[in-house]
Design a protein around this nucleic acid. Structure first.
Lengths: 267, 267
DNA sequence: CAGTGGTCTAGACCACGCT
DNA sequence: GCGTGGTCTAGACCACTGT
């Protein structure tokens, strides 16, 4: 089954064959793949080469391996959809109610399709000098003190995303926004700012993807071969949409758990 | 330097130390890291363990390795920004000119900040039965014939993205849109549809991230540890924004080459 | 030519899951 | 207890880059 005359290394040739089975549907998600010993016999390779094969497929996010069990085809369908008009719905909710009343929906819980009580929130609030990219997005001098709020969101005990939100300190000092004990807060960021008399009129999001750092892998329980989507968000206030009131630098979401939907109207 | 009593494997401990140097800025992009032999001496590990260390850092997208040269810290800054209002600018251009005249700007060339002549286009046009997800997005019966247009975009001879665009065949048969020899086409997709009397009024984009397939790695020259962003795009026409005229399933962009910017107005 | 990373082998011990 | 994957060693040959 291996072509020794080929330039392609043996472990890649074996990976090619297993990948073909996975992508063709011949080996659907959940299927158990040959054990390393079986690979050694079937392809006439050493243990090390068999392991190299599975290293490749693991890095591609195609398989899961477990000690004592074996190697299995991973289910790669992504789950919840996060729509860009979640912000608009939040605004409508605020206008309708005049003022949000608990237990309200937030963009996060609504995206999950689960109820408020089904998620947990880890949080730490810090006053820190603004990092450079934050200062730039908030139009502040570098080093200006800002409020940094760290969150990890869970749905049904599964971590879904982590984020750091930055606010100009002058804006929020002494307000409920700066009080960790006020969480969970009704209605999400836009509603929180509305209680301070700030009307958010525009949201800007910058989307990137990269491999997770070890700490992110641990906190979000990200399996091998799964990248993260990062969103750098900025909220602008005022009729001219020019006053930055919040930037959530690095919202980090495991890419196997989300689809980001955006709508662009051309009229 | 290695703690043999730790649960953390030796190759991870070495990776932790090198990662710390990279992320702290102690080893900035371009820095040469210790050779495998040096790692063996400095940390008292075997060649295999040293290689495992660099496998980890490679999969995280932190380093590049080259035979005969060594291991180097990769520059991870992402480059061009792709703004969601590129579609709006394209519409404005069409309205202004009445009809696009070459050499025009497209959303693609404008995003590059390069001129039209600096990129090349590989293309194949096929009439195929609509795949399931395409049929659903176009509101067609599964298997309805559609026009599939395959593109690979280059900027300065570097591949930047590949895509497949699907059009309902009834809409475009016999028109210039279905003629491969008409490429490069002035003004991008929206302008092309405008010449058919179709006014695109809404664009929907769904953004995902995953590791690239081998063919994508080859075509787009993607280094190890770099995911791809995929955009599934749908264009809608008509005053009610309800007639799907195009879906580009799987626009694939190496994540180290792009930032996707979206603006959401709340009024 | 010496040094680099890429591939591959044969073997060892371990932690874990299942029966 | 046996089979699984996870870690680690010692050693070999190769292709490529530099001097």
């Amino acid at each position: 089954m291996i072509d020794p005359t080929s330039d392609r290394p043996a472990y890649q040739q074996v990976a090619d064959e297993l990948r073909r089975r996975i992508l063709s549907g011949e080996a659907p998600p959940g299927t158990r793949l040959p054990s390393e010993s079986e690979l050694m016999r079937e392809f006439g390779i050493s243990r090390t080469t068999a392991r190299l094969t599975y290293n490749v497929l693991r890095a591609e996010g195609l398989i899961d391996t477990a000690r004592g069990k074996g190697a299995f085809v991973r289910d790669r369908r992504s789950a919840r959809r996060v729509a860009s008009d979640r912000y608009r719905r939040e605004v409508l909710q605020i206008r309708k109610q005049g003022e949000p009343t608990p237990p309200p929906e937030t963009s996060f819980t609504r995206d999950q399709g689960i109820s408020w009580s089904q998620y947990r929130l880890d949080k730490e609030f810090h006053e820190v000098p603004a990092p450079d990219h934050v200062a730039e997005l908030l139009n502040l001098e570098p080093g200006t003190p800002v409020l940094a709020r760290h969150f990890v969101f869970y749905a049904e005990d599964q971590p879904q995303q982590m984020s750091v939100s930055y606010y100009p300190l002058d804006l929020v000092r002494g307000t409920p926004v700066a009080d960790p004990n006020n969480e969970p807060w009704p209605g999400g960021n836009i509603a929180q700012l509305a209680t301070l008399g700030i009307t958010v009129t525009r949201v800007e999001e910058s989307v990137r993807a990269r491999m997770p750092l070890p700490e992110e892998k641990r906190t979000l329980r990200i399996p091998p071969g799964v990248p993260v989507l990062t969103i750098t968000r900025r909220m602008l206030a005022g009729p001219n949409k020019d006053r930055p009131v919040e930037v959530a630098a690095d919202i980090v979401i495991p890419a196997d758990r989300v689809v980001l939907d955006y709508t662009i109207d051309l009229d």
